[in-house]
Amino acid sequence: MGLMFKDETYRGDFTFYNSPEAIRHFPFPFHEDKYMYAVNIEPHTPGPKGSAYEFPIDIDEHYVSDMRDRALVLQEDPLRCQSLPHMITAEWDLVELLMTSMSDAYPEHFTLKRNGDAWHWINRPMGIENEFTFGDTSTLPYPPMEYITRQCQGDFCLLDQRDGDLWMDSGMVTSQADWSLDFDIGMSFKEWHAPVPLAHEIGVFDRALKFLLAMQIGRPVRRLNWTMTINPRLDTSPENYHKWGTDRTTVTPENVGDKVHLRVELQALWRLPRSNAIVFSIRGYLIKMRELVTIPKWGRRMPRVLKTLPPELAAYKGLTRYQDMTIDWLAKYDDGAPTSPGCFPD
């Protein structure tokens, strides 16, 4: 399918941008002209060709640069990848899920050969090749989860299931929207979601937890979440908030189109076969306002969503400082025409 991997940065000179194909690939999250929390979980089944949902694990033109940024984050802060000791079986489950998904969907880029426990993995874009024994950690250069998630876009959490709850016991989290794996590791489902406003009161987490506890093997699910980010920065962690926080004051009416990014998380979940744990993947996508408005439907809808956003949500997502300026910049792309239902471009 001819993916061309770009060489771009998510820090410093911020050379990240989306090609026209990547813009159409973007998982725009608003199916109507307003937004409020909902459980919004749907089966993670193949979507339209060229969309972010075409394959279970989405690899795109930003792959090589994403992985380079992850390596930089880990070099500065190894605690972004942590796993409690009882999660080792789930780590191997994740190796299997990602290697099989990536090699099935993108055979020209990834190859997996299996002969019993003797596995051979080839990652051509990153120039990685390893023969290893499945289940034997000493045969890989990193622990299993770290090894494979250094080679797969998106943050990953492994949730242990016990006592009728899910526990955040393992993760590779380098491109998070302001939450800390190091702080949250070991927490139950509702504990790690504690800082989220409004959603607890309307029962979102009760319903979501009940649903996830009943998840079955072979029936992955997905949902979208979103926020906004100034500059195409992947590492908007709380750990480094004192370094990137000033970005939020650099927005001017002139630079909104290039500085302000919609950040969408395609969250997909799989039940794992050996460990009975759940993979929670958080695959982030960034799009500049200037790129977003090239899809007329999205250009109309985005300012309408921002105008009607409850203030608590705007504050939690950190938009308050530049929300109005962004609405003003987007206004010229909203001619007041009705928008069609659903997220996809017309």
């Binding site: 702080f183 709380p238 990137w244 004051t249």
Partner: peptide, 15 residues
């Protein structure tokens, strides 16, 4: 965080 026995402190003047 029970694991840390602590609340979370976040830079107040980062922006």
């Amino acid at each position: 965080s029970r694991r840390l026995g602590a609340f979370q402190g976040v830079c107040v003047d980062a922006e």
